[in-house]
């Protein structure tokens, strides 16, 4: 068996009395595309924060590319190829779109010079369809453009593993289609991607594998169709009312 790209073992995280993540274990392989679902407050963002170093686990161990990374800082993990986007977009507001991305190319992507970083950034912006925003400040961009900006920033860092925390939230159907195209493009380069997503249609279209969180616990994981048919998943995630609709979607 080859070593997993990411290995999360018995990770827990408490906030005061609340167990936001409770003894979660899972593994990811290189190039794998995995969906992560769970109702509001299930612990999805917390799990991303734990893996990417923005939070420390209360318990458990995390390995990335065969090395223990528990407690490592986000900047170090970013440089090692572990990137994430933020659920609430976090642009650098006084930098142009180009320099937002150039900063990532420079600090996480290892570009030597500012001009080199800008070249990479320019290519990434064009390739993600927001080349026209190159000299705009983030405040002048639409939400969909800013979501793509986050993608571009993560992409120029040349990640091995990318967590996308609800990149589609707040976008209309057309915009979502566009972003999905971008994600496929990134995945085609062999980047492993974990997509946190509320829309089952998106998950099914994109992710062969699925992880389900419920109240901080790993409720199920495995091939998307199987997991989505799992009765406890249906009940926990969708409630009985949505169950029929979801089963309909899966078939």
């Amino acid at each position: 068996m080859t070593a997993a790209l990411l290995d999360v073992r018995h990770v827990s995280r408490r906030f005061g009395g609340l167990k936001a993540i409770d003894d979660v274990s899972f593994r990811l392989n290189e190039g794998e595309i995995v969906g992560m679902i769970g109702s509001n407050g299930a612990g999805k963002t917390t799990l991303v924060n734990l893996v990417t170093g923005h939070l420390r686990p209360s318990q458990g161990e995390i390995s990335f590319r065969g090395q223990r990374i528990t407690g490592r800082k986000p900047h170090e993990l970013a440089s090692r190829g572990l990137m994430r986007t933020f659920q609430v977009v976090q642009p650098f507001n006084a930098l142009t779109a180009l320099d937002n991305v150039a900063a990532a190319a420079m600090f996480a992507g290892g570009a030597r010079s500012l001009s080199g970083a800008r070249e990479q950034a320019d290519a990434a912006l064009s390739s993600l369809g927001i080349g026209h925003c190159r000299d705009h400040l983030p405040i002048r961009m639409t939400l969909a453009e800013r979501k793509r900006l986050e993608l571009a920033r993560a992409w120029v860092a040349k990640p091995k593993l990318l967590f996308l925390d609800e990149v589609n939230a707040g976008l209309n159907t057309g915009e979502i289609e566009g972003v999905l195209g971008m994600i496929r493009k990134i995945a085609a380069e062999g980047v492993a991607i974990v997509i946190i997503e509320h829309l089952m249609k998106v998950v099914k279209g994109l992710c062969p594998q699925l992880i389900v969180l419920h109240r901080g616990q790993l409720l199920a994981s495995g091939p998307t169709d199987e997991v989505a048919r799992n009765p406890s998943v249906i009940e926990a995630y969708l409630g009985t009312r949505g169950a029929a609709a979801m089963l309909g979607e899966v078939r």
Binding site: T52, H54, K73, H75, A78, Q90, F92, A103
Partner: peptide, 22 residues
């Protein structure tokens, strides 16, 4: 490069860490 990193830190330290700024 230091100044570019400081710029990022001033604007959003969490995002700065996320793109590899120590």
């Amino acid at each position: 490069r230091l100044g570019f990193g400081l710029d990022c830190i001033r604007m959003n330290e969490t995002a700065a860490a996320g793109i590899g700024v120590d």
